[in-house]
């Protein structure tokens, strides 16, 4: 699987206000992804590239959803791959997509439901002929569904995986950029004070300790460095969401929705 943060983020700037003549906003969801793909020569390669890209970005939530739906690893894998092929190549799902379903994240989910139904009708539990696929999809090691997720509903696990994938992407991207820009200390402080304590359920070290560890004399300076990293993450988050949002307003809405989801989940768990 390929993962190229420099392709997906970086200098990408896109107006998402364009309406395309075909498929309306739903088509536009996919269209917005084109700009992430470089060096695509032909239509054939374009499709291939798009499938690859969507797989790379969104396979986890789809796969988790399918697993929680009851499919085993192989079946889930198969369906994931088939789904993205279907979305790109046949456009049926896209064209039939219900605009009222709103954001891309939820649009994919509903398209996925549609796809599963179709496959069931076509006895989709049979293994498909891999030759029909443009892009092969190999999970090196199947993701063990974390315990917390295994208790979530399929839709919740889809959202969970979607969000985790998003967080992984933006954290990785910002880390890379910080290192490139000679801001290793910035990133370290942010990791030590914010990320690690959250992910490991530990108390963050004191500012004084952090400063000493990183060789910074001034706590205020350390605080500013954290703010700087935060801003970069916010920007990365916006860029990530902008691809799938139809307007700037939607970015915030999408984010708020995700935050709501987690609040709910936190209560359940």
């Amino acid at each position: 699987m390929f993962c190229r943060p420099d392709v997906l983020f970086g200098a990408f700037r896109m107006k998402v206000y364009d309406q395309t003549s075909m498929g309306g906003e739903a088509e536009m969801f996919l269209t917005t992804h084109w700009s992430l793909i470089e060096d695509v020569q032909s239509e054939h390669n374009k499709d291939k590239a798009l499938i690859g890209l969507l797989l790379d970005r969104y396979w986890k939530p789809v796969y988790c959803y399918l697993r929680r739906k009851g499919y085993d690893n192989e079946q889930a894998k198969d369906l994931t791959q088939g789904f993205f092929h279907e979305v790109v190549l046949n456009r049926n799902l896209v064209q039939r997509a219900d605009k009222s379903k709103g954001h891309f994240r939820t649009f994919i989910l509903h398209a996925l439901d549609q796809y599963i139904l179709n496959e069931k009708r076509r006895q989709a539990t049979q293994k498909r002929n891999p030759k029909g696929r443009l892009v092969s999809f190999d999970i090196i090691s199947p993701p063990a569904l974390p315990e917390a997720v295994s208790r979530l509903s399929p839709e919740d696990s889809y959202n969970y995986a979607w969000t985790a994938a998003m967080l992984d992407k933006i954290l990785s991207e910002v880390e890379t950029r910080c290192l490139e820009d000679d801001m290793e200390i910035h990133w370290r402080i942010f990791q030590d004070r914010i990320v690690q304590p959250i992910l490991t359920d530990t108390e963050p070290p004191s500012f004084a300790d952090t400063c000493e560890k990183c060789g910074i004399e001034d706590q205020k300076k350390a605080s500013n460095m954290i703010t700087t990293v935060k801003r970069r993450l916010q920007k990365a988050l916006r860029d990530y969401l902008r691809i799938i949002a139809t307007s700037e307003d939607e970015i915030y809405e999408e984010f708020s929705e995700i935050m709501q989801f987690f609040k709910k989940s936190a209560q359940d768990v």
């Binding site: 992984d168 935050m259 936190a266």
Partner: peptide
């Protein structure tokens, strides 16, 4: 972050 509890993801998002 895949593997963290949803509540942890929530906190991380809030922090950002």
């Amino acid at each position: 972050t895949f593997g963290a509890r949803p509540e942890q993801l929530n906190r991380l998002l809030s922090a950002i």
